[in-house]
Amino acid sequence: MNGAGERVNQGDFGFEERMRELLAEDAYTIQPSSAPYPAIRRRGLAERRRRVAMAGAALMTLAAVPVGAYAVAGGNGERGADTAAPKPSVSAPHSPAGSPRATAGGTAAGPAQPATGGQLLDGITFAQAADGLKKCLAAEGGPPGSAADLGEAENYRIILAIRSTGDSNSPGDGIYVTAVEKRSAGRWVVCSIKDGVASGISAGTIDTGVPGTGPVVVDSNGEQLYQQSFMDKGRWKLPFRWGMIGTVEASVAKVTVSYGDGGPVTATLDHGWFAVAGQLNQQVTLAPHVKGYDGSGKLVYDSDQDGTYQRTLP
């Protein structure tokens, strides 16, 4: 029994030893595979794309919801203090032709239009003229309440808009927008706009209460409308678009202006002002010749007889 038992134990021991050797050999031959980087990277990219797509879908969903329709409910299911409820739309009332459009608050949004479309020349629209006037007053006007304060555009009426010709003193062509204050008799501004930017302004007041003032008054300070720089005397760029403005009494029914080789041009009468424009094709030394007539056709004003009018150009 003992001999047989020893043989069995020796056999078991031999088998166990063999298994240990085999396992030891496998430990050296079996190696873990390397991490599948390309596959992992593809999964990572796909995951990022999926997250981006989900975020984009969420943004599109939010964008599809009208802002005014979004509301936050309070704890009791009713609208709380953070509610963003839709507001009713407000339509501005239609303004009559020739008057400035009003906002919901009732404040005029811009200057009044001229009496006729013929006062806007050279393809200039009223919108362009109004925008130029606003820019000019904002850029060139003084501090509010000061003597140089020219007020807001809605206080004015545009009476003339023409192209401007550059000269040695102010190079570059542009446009002139001439406007007059609606509530201050005799006050005018001429705005220079070049490339959509305000480049200068002239302003003045015609005092019709001065003794000896006639039924037609031209402010010589507005000469930039009808002449180029004195430095270019005799060498003006031609053809030259010129303009002129002035005040008229109620008795005046017609105003004509002659300049250079051109015949008389009939001015437009607009709320106590006259506005006129023409085209000059020759060099000149004399200022425009202005005449005014009453309702019967009688001559009541002639600039050649006006001692305050400068007939000769500088």
Rank of each mutant, 00 (worst) to 15 (best):
S251L: 11
P36Y: 01
V210T: 15
A84M: 12
G123K: 06
Y70G: 09
A275G: 01
P36K: 00
R43A: 15
I30K: 10
I124A: 00
Q10G: 06
L238M: 12
R7S: 08
T29G: 03
N9T: 09
L133K: 03
T256S: 09
S192H: 08
G196A: 01
P38D: 13
A277P: 01
G118P: 01
L137R: 04
S184L: 13
G75I: 10
D302V: 01
E25F: 10
N281G: 04
A35G: 08
G292R: 03
G132R: 03
G11R: 15
P171S: 10
L150P: 01
Q128A: 04
A108P: 05
K291S: 04
G142T: 03
Q113E: 10
A104W: 13
Y301P: 00
V248I: 08
R163M: 09
T266Y: 00
C136L: 02
T213I: 11
G14A: 09
D302Y: 00
R20S: 12
E223D: 15
A138M: 09
R18P: 00
V8I: 15
Y37P: 00
Q305A: 15
D219C: 08
Y156T: 01
S170E: 11
A46D: 13
G214R: 03
K254M: 05
E25S: 13
N9G: 06
T116K: 13
D232N: 09
H289F: 08
G110M: 06
D304Y: 08
S258R: 11
A198I: 00
A203T: 13
R311C: 02
A139D: 11
M231P: 00
E181N: 14
M60F: 12
V180T: 13
G172W: 10
W236P: 03
E249S: 15
G172H: 10
F15C: 10
A4H: 07
P93L: 08
A130E: 02
Y309H: 02
P86A: 10
F13K: 11
T308V: 12
I206L: 14
G56V: 11
V65K: 04
T178P: 13
N2I: 11
